[in-house]
Deep mutational scan, measured.
Amino acid sequence: SLSVDNKKFWATVESSEHSFEVPIYAETLDEALELAEWQYVPAGFEVTRVRPCVAP
């Protein structure tokens, strides 16, 4: 099958004044980091952490 098993990760994104967490959907932690950097670094943010979303 061609289905992709995307998992939810939380990326911590920082600017000079703010820090916030955004959801990233990817297959692996490395891919989540790449996606977060691709989305947020060009906008002037720094991705400081990516972690798996742990269900309660």
Rank of each mutant, 00 (worst) to 15 (best):
S3G: 12
V54K: 09
F20T: 03
N6G: 10
A26L: 01
E37W: 09
N6W: 08
V50Y: 02
T48V: 14
F9P: 00
E17M: 11
N6D: 08
A32Q: 00
D5H: 04
W10L: 08
F20W: 08
A55W: 11
L2D: 09
S15M: 08
E21V: 10
I24H: 00
V47L: 04
T48G: 02
W38I: 13
S16T: 07
L33Q: 09
L35M: 12
V13H: 01
V22P: 00
E46V: 15
V4T: 13
L29F: 06
V13T: 01
A26H: 03
E17C: 09
E37P: 01
L35H: 04
H18Q: 12
K7C: 15
E46G: 04
K8H: 09
F45A: 03
P56G: 12
V41Q: 09
L29Y: 08
V50L: 06
L35E: 04
G44E: 02
F9S: 00
P23H: 07
P56S: 12
L33D: 01
E14R: 09
E21A: 04
R49T: 15
R49H: 15
S19I: 12
E31R: 13
Q39D: 04
A55C: 13
A55G: 12
D30S: 14
K7H: 09
E27N: 11
V41W: 09
E34N: 11
N6K: 15
L2K: 05
Y40A: 04
P52H: 08
F45L: 04
W38L: 13
K8C: 15
A11M: 04
I24P: 01
T48D: 04
T48A: 04
S3R: 09
F9M: 00
A32S: 01
Q39C: 15
V22Q: 02
L29T: 04
A26D: 00
A11W: 02
E34I: 14
V54D: 12
W10P: 00
K8P: 05
P42G: 08
P56Y: 10
A36E: 01
G44W: 03
P56W: 11
V47I: 08
E34S: 13
R49V: 14
Y40H: 03
L35D: 02
P52G: 07
R51S: 06
A26V: 02
V50H: 02
V54R: 07
L33E: 04
E31S: 06
Y25W: 14
L2P: 14
S3H: 12
F20R: 03
A36C: 06
A32V: 02
Y25T: 04
W10N: 01
L2H: 12
V22D: 02
A32K: 02
W10K: 04
A11I: 12
F9R: 00
D30P: 05
L35P: 01
S16R: 11
K7Q: 08
D30E: 15
G44T: 00
S16Y: 09
F45E: 02
T28N: 10
V13C: 05
C53V: 09
P42H: 09
P42A: 10
E27S: 14
E14T: 14
T28M: 03
H18K: 11
E34M: 15
G44C: 04
R51P: 01
A55I: 12
A32D: 00
A11R: 00
A55Q: 11
V50E: 02
F9W: 13
A11E: 01
L33P: 00
P52Y: 12
S3K: 10
K7D: 01
V13P: 00
W38A: 14
E17F: 12
E14I: 12
I24K: 00
F9N: 01
P42K: 07
W38S: 14
V4F: 11
A55F: 12
T48S: 05
A36V: 06
T48I: 14
V13L: 08
D30A: 14
E14G: 06
V41P: 05
E46F: 08
E37I: 15
A26M: 02
E31A: 12
C53T: 06
V22M: 04
E14H: 11
Q39F: 14
V47D: 04
E27G: 14
E34D: 07
D30M: 11
G44Y: 02
P23R: 05
D5C: 15
S1T: 10
R51I: 08
L33T: 09
E31Y: 05
V50R: 00
T48N: 04
Q39E: 09
E46Q: 14
D30F: 09
V41K: 14
E17R: 08
A11Q: 01
T12L: 13
T12Y: 08
T28V: 02
P42S: 09
A32C: 06
F45P: 01
S19Y: 08
P42M: 07
A55S: 12
D30V: 11
R49C: 13
A36K: 00
L35K: 13
E21C: 08
I24R: 00
W38F: 13
E21L: 07
A55T: 11
P42V: 07
K8E: 05
V41C: 06
V22R: 02
R49E: 14
V41F: 06
A55M: 11
Q39P: 03
L29G: 04
W10F: 06
R51E: 12
T28L: 02
F9A: 00
Q39A: 09
V47N: 02
W10T: 04
E37D: 04
E17Q: 08
V50C: 00
E37N: 09
V41I: 07
P23D: 05
A43T: 04
P23V: 15
V13N: 00
V54G: 07
T28G: 05
N6Y: 15
H18V: 14
E17T: 11
A43S: 08
K8F: 13
E37F: 11
V13K: 00
V54S: 12
A32H: 00
K7W: 11
A43G: 07
E27F: 10
E21M: 06
E21G: 06
T48Q: 04
E21Y: 06
K8T: 07
S19G: 03
W38D: 10
V4D: 06
V54W: 12
D30L: 11
E46K: 15
N6E: 07
P42T: 10
H18L: 13
